[in-house]
């Protein structure tokens, strides 16, 4: 061991002592394994750096180059013909084997998929949604219904549900006289109620007018005689005989959910079907909310 090496190692010892001093002054707990490993690493770096640099400095002092030169040289600078180092060769071979594995197994089986992540998220969300809203109370449904209504329904029916002066169904009343007359004149069969299609022109003239006025005014006062034509399907009270035909008196779950599912084309315009855009619970919540709008 020559003098240079002793000096270098002494410098390393000084560095290590200084490190210890800093570690102590910062109250770092060396019994913690991570801190201990880091400390050992710091010592190793100091020792190895000192030793390796001194080794090469000594070599540079005495070493001379020899070996067979390659044919080409650039302005007098040549290159030795060295054997391929075996470590390098094995690493290269290893990379090739890893490449084959990655190509056929690694990437195809472990690749990140945006759609896969989306599917997992949706599945997890739906599961949570179903668990949370298994038996929702009416107030929870109303709250949910309102938020859905504001996003999906308000662009046509307005934020208050008044149908924006005749641009869509007005949820604050059941039907206007014009709407009822239109349905009486043209019939209706869009919501697949068990009673089936309502034929066009069941009543006409004064009878239709009287019925429409009576229904539009909220079925108050004396029931017109002509309503018997409606009663066979819609019931004597006009409430649709518990879901057999549309309820003329008020909004009920059946008519809201069926309209959301099938969409509707009427006097005011066309409503698209929301079948694929709402879950059954969401449809029920909309119904719960719409019933509060009157």
């Amino acid at each position: 061991m020559n003098g240079l090496m002793i000096k270098a190692l002494s410098f390393a010892v000084v560095l290590i002592l200084a490190t210890f001093y800093v570690v102590n002054s910062m109250n770092i707990d060396l019994s913690d394994p991570i801190n201990m490993i880091t400390m050992i690493g710091a010592i190793a770096i100091a020792v190895i750096t000192a030793g390796v640099s001194v080794k090469y400095i000594n070599q540079m002092k005495s070493d001379t180059a020899d070996g067979k030169l390659a044919e080409e040289n650039w302005d007098g600078i040549g290159e030795y013909l060295n054997e391929l180092p075996s470590g390098w060769a094995f690493s290269f071979l290893g990379t090739m084997i890893w490449g084959v594995w990655y190509w056929f197994i690694g990437y195809p089986l472990n690749a990140f998929s945006q759609i896969g992540q989306y599917n997992e998220e949706v599945l997890a969300y739906n599961k949570k949604f179903e668990a949370t809203y298994k038996n929702p109370s009416v107030s929870v449904l109303k709250e949910m219904g309102e938020s859905i209504f504001l996003v999906k329904c308000a662009p046509c029916h307005g934020t208050t549900g008044d149908g924006l002066s005749g641009k869509a169904q007005d949820f604050t009343t059941r039907m206007s006289k014009a709407q009822i007359l239109d349905i009486i004149a043209n019939g209706s069969n869009q919501l697949s109620y068990p009673m089936g299609a309502m034929p066009a022109g069941m009543v006409s003239g004064d009878d239709a007018n009287v019925i429409a006025t009576w229904i539009a005014s909220g079925m108050k006062g004396e029931k017109p005689v002509a309503f018997t034509a409606c009663a066979s399907c819609h019931g004597e009270d006009g409430k649709g005989m518990a879901g057999m035909a549309p309820n003329l008196a008020e909004y009920d779950d059946t008519i809201i959910i069926k309209t959301l599912e099938h969409g509707k084309k009427g006097k005011l315009g066309t409503m698209p079907s929301f079948k694929t855009m709402l879950t059954p619970v969401q449809a029920k919540s909309l119904s719960a909310y719409i019933k509060t709008l009157k």
């Binding site: 999906k152 662009p155 641009k167 005011l268 066309t270 698209p272 929301f274 694929t276």
Partner: peptide
């Protein structure tokens, strides 16, 4: 096209605030 209709577009293109204040 799934959730808006001809009549809605007609009103909306003529005066957007009529349907979306």
């Amino acid at each position: 096209g799934n959730y808006r209709t001809t009549d809605w577009h007609e009103t909306h293109m003529f005066e957007p605030t009529a349907v979306v204040p």
